[in-house]
Each structure stands twice: as structure tokens, then as C-alpha cells.
């Protein structure tokens, strides 16, 4: 047990780094993801195709490879904003492709009659989207989006090999230093991740209830 009790401050610091990674890359993912997602359902064919290309490329590349690309590859060609930014950039563009897919399936999940009804009473496209489609699709988007952010929270562990001392980095160090207590260390740090995951799904549950509409 002393592995955890002696190092609780290191572990907490590690989780603080994890949360920082989650927030920054989550923000990047949300901005890019919403833009790509909107392009994915837009009436302009070339915008749709560009968005499909984005999703195809970034969804099918493993996150490790993207981090290698931004952390080692881009500085080699003179693009370097510091390691924290480069890592969150990789996580952001990767997760954005999943966010975009959530947005698309949310918009496509709205019964077509809704858009038809809106048009038949004379609403233009912009009004149909902002007044009828998007408010309903938010609710459909929340559960899959929560899954994506839970996956991102777990994926932040990939930063540990690239100079960020987040929770998994701490667990690796402690596995090494306290060879007999590895199971406790694993369970203890796993508990931290489980708390983060549960907080995200709790938040999603609250949002979902708030945006519930009766249909």
C-alpha cells in the first residue's frame, strides 16, 4: 500500500496533467470536429467530400502514429510549438474525426419529416437548421460524444512516452520502483481513471436529461 500512500502527491500531479491534456485536446477536437461535422452534412458536395477525406485519414491512423508525426516529424520540417502543444494537436485532430462522425449521425438521426415540415411552413435552410434540426440533434449527439470523450480521457495515456508526466507515466515509474506492489498501484491509478470516466458520463447524463424533448 505504501507505494500509493507515499506517492499520492506525484499521482495527483499526474492526474492534473491528464486532465490538462483532456481539456486542451478536447477543446481542439470540439472546434475542428464541429466544423468538419457541419461540412459533412452541408449541401455543397465538395465540402462534404473534403470532410469525408478528413475523417477517413484521421480516423484510420493510430493515435501513436499521429503523435509520432507531430512530436518527431513536424519539428523535423521546422514546425514546432513545444511538445505539449504538438501532442494535444495530434490528440485533437484525431478525436475531431470522431466528433465529426457524432455530429453527422446526430443530424442524420432526426426524422426527415422534421426538415420537410419546417420547409413546408416556409422556413429557409438556416432557420430549419438552427430552429428545428440542431436543437433536436444535440440530444442525439450527447451519448456518442460522451463515449468519444471517455476514449480521449483514456487516450491521454499515450502522451506518457513523449515527455509528459501524466498519470500513466507515474504508474510506469511506480511499477518500476515498487516491484512487489504492482497490483495495488495498477488498481489505485485505474481508480483515478474510472473516476474521470464516470464524471464524463455523469455530465453527459445531466445534459441528456436537460435537452430531452418529447417526440
Amino acid at each position: 500500500m505504501e507505494a500509493l500512500t507515499e506517492n499520492w502527491d506525484l499521482i495527483l500531479k499526474g492526474f492534473w496533467e491528464t486532465i490538462k491534456l483532456l481539456l486542451v485536446s478536447g477543446g481542439i477536437a470540439l472546434v475542428i470536429g464541429v466544423l468538419v461535422g457541419v461540412a459533412r452534412v452541408s449541401p455543397v458536395a465538395i465540402l462534404r467530400r473534403t470532410a469525408v477525406g478528413y475523417v477517413t485519414i484521421f480516423r484510420n491512423t493510430p493515435l501513436v502514429v499521429l503523435i509520432i508525426l507531430t512530436y518527431y516529424g513536424l519539428p523535423e520540417i521546422g514546425i514546432d510549438f513545444g511538445f505539449f502543444t504538438m501532442i494535444t494537436l495530434a490528440m485533437g485532430v484525431y478525436t475531431a474525426s470522431f466528433v465529426a462522425e457524432c455530429i453527422r449521425s446526430g443530424v442524420n438521426g432526426i426524422p426527415l419529416g422534421q426538415a420537410e415540415a419546417a420547409r413546408s411552413i416556409g422556413m429557409p435552410f438556416g432557420m430549419t437548421m438552427t430552429q428545428v434540426i440542431l436543437p433536436q440533434s444535440f440530444r442525439l449527439v450527447v451519448p456518442p460524444l460522451a463515449s468519444v470523450y471517455i476514449a480521449l480521457a483514456k487516450n491521454t495515456s499515450l502522451a506518457h512516452g513523449f515527455g509528459i508526466a501524466e498519470a500513466t507515466f507515474r504508474s510506469k515509474g511506480l511499477f518500476n520502483d515498487y516491484a512487489t506492489d504492482r497490483v495495488e498501484i495498477f488498481l489505485g491509478i485505474a481508480l483515478g481513471y474510472i473516476i474521470i470516466v464516470e464524471l464524463i458520463s455523469l455530465g453527459a447524463g445531466l445534459l441528456e436529461r436537460r435537452w430531452r424533448v418529447s417526440r
Binding site: R59, S97, F98, E101, C102, S105, G106, N108, G109, L140, P143, P144, S147, V148, I150, A151, N155
Partner: peptide
């Protein structure tokens, strides 16, 4: 499946996977 979670709602197409 979306990001390792099974979605009850079966919207169009195979969902994203993480």
C-alpha cells in the same frame, strides 16, 4: 459501437470507432 461503448440508438451506418 462508438468509442468502445455500445450505442442503443442505431442511427444510420456503422458508427465511429476509437
Amino acid at each position: 459501437i462508438v468509442a468502445g461503448q455500445v450505442q442503443a440508438d442505431a442511427s444510420a451506418g456503422a458508427g465511429p470507432v476509437v
